[in-house]
């Protein structure tokens, strides 16, 4: 059976009260980006199928919360993204991610390039509001070139999906449910037992400092890291206003 390509058609909806013209089949996040509006996200990564797990991209569609990365646009829907309520939800999600793991930005080599940290800065999180859980999690350094620090994993599944869908290896998987859910490697219990190679796209998929190339930490000087001078989302937002912020990430 030959592939059927459905014709695209224009869809008109409102985003924070502004009328937006999008293409059918686009998600709310894609349609917003197309008109230069950034919706924060963590589990979403361009080139991967939408996943909708982190809920950082929560918007309301006709008043009901939905993840912007998985919700398709439709004619006449009213999407809200930047209300006080929605910003508070997103901020709380980020705060929960920080306290649920062990995120010590001050000596994490991902600092300055970390999407979780950058979202914290963008959202103005300057101090912890929720109690830390201080989980005890291992570091898997068994692989000769790649390291997993489970203390920093936020369960976004970007490595799982990239290894499976881009690298074709299924080096990573989740095990456990609920609060016991955690990243694991397949088939063995250690990273060195997988077919993961340091050149795999999955190694670069991690938004935080959980999966790292070994022996490369801190090679980029402060001042030249991704988010040293501009907040996350700057590349999407139009017009791009570059402002040098006071101070740099830790």
């Amino acid at each position: 059976m030959s592939e059927v390509i459905l014709p695209t058609s224009e869809v008109i909806f409102t985003l924070d009260g502004v009328t937006v013209t999008a293409q059918s089949g686009q998600t709310v996040m894609e349609a917003a980006e197309a008109v230069g509006i950034y919706i924060p996200r963590l589990c979403h990564k361009e080139g991967l199928e939408p996943y909708g797990s982190c809920r950082v991209c929560t918007v309301t569609v006709n008043g009901r919360p939905a993840s912007a990365c998985t919700t398709p646009v439709a004619d006449g829907i009213a999407v809200e993204s930047e209300s006080d309520q929605i910003r508070a939800w997103r901020r709380t999600v980020i705060e929960m991610l920080f306290v649920e793991g062990n995120h010590f930005c001050m000596f994490c080599e991902k600092s300055g390039n970390c999407e979780l940290q950058a979202l914290g800065y963008r959202m103005g999180i300057v101090a912890p509001r929720l109690p830390y859980l201080w989980p005890k999690r291992p570091v898997d350094a068994s692989h000769p070139d790649v390291l997993i620090d489970h203390n920093r994993c936020i369960l976004c599944a970007r490595c799982v999906r990239t290894s499976r869908d881009v690298d074709g290896k299924q080096a990573f998987a989740f095990v456990g449910r609920g609060s016991r859910r955690h990243l694991a490697v397949n088939p063995g219990s250690r990273l060195c037992d997988t077919k993961l190679d340091v050149t795999d796209a999955a190694v670069d998929a991690c938004p935080v400092g959980a999966i790292l190339r070994k022996r490369r930490g801190f090679e980029t000087p402060i001042g030249r890291r991704l988010y040293d001078h501009v907040p996350i989302g700057t590349g999407v937002e139009q017009p791009v206003e570059l402002t040098i912020r006071e101070g740099s990430p830790s």
């Binding site: 001050m106 080599e109 390291l147 930490g217 801190f218």
Partner: peptide
């Protein structure tokens, strides 16, 4: 202990 060695100059300075 248990941390990667390249973290030491940044971690221990704290």
């Amino acid at each position: 202990c248990g941390r990667p060695y390249w973290e030491m100059p940044v971690a221990v300075q704290r």
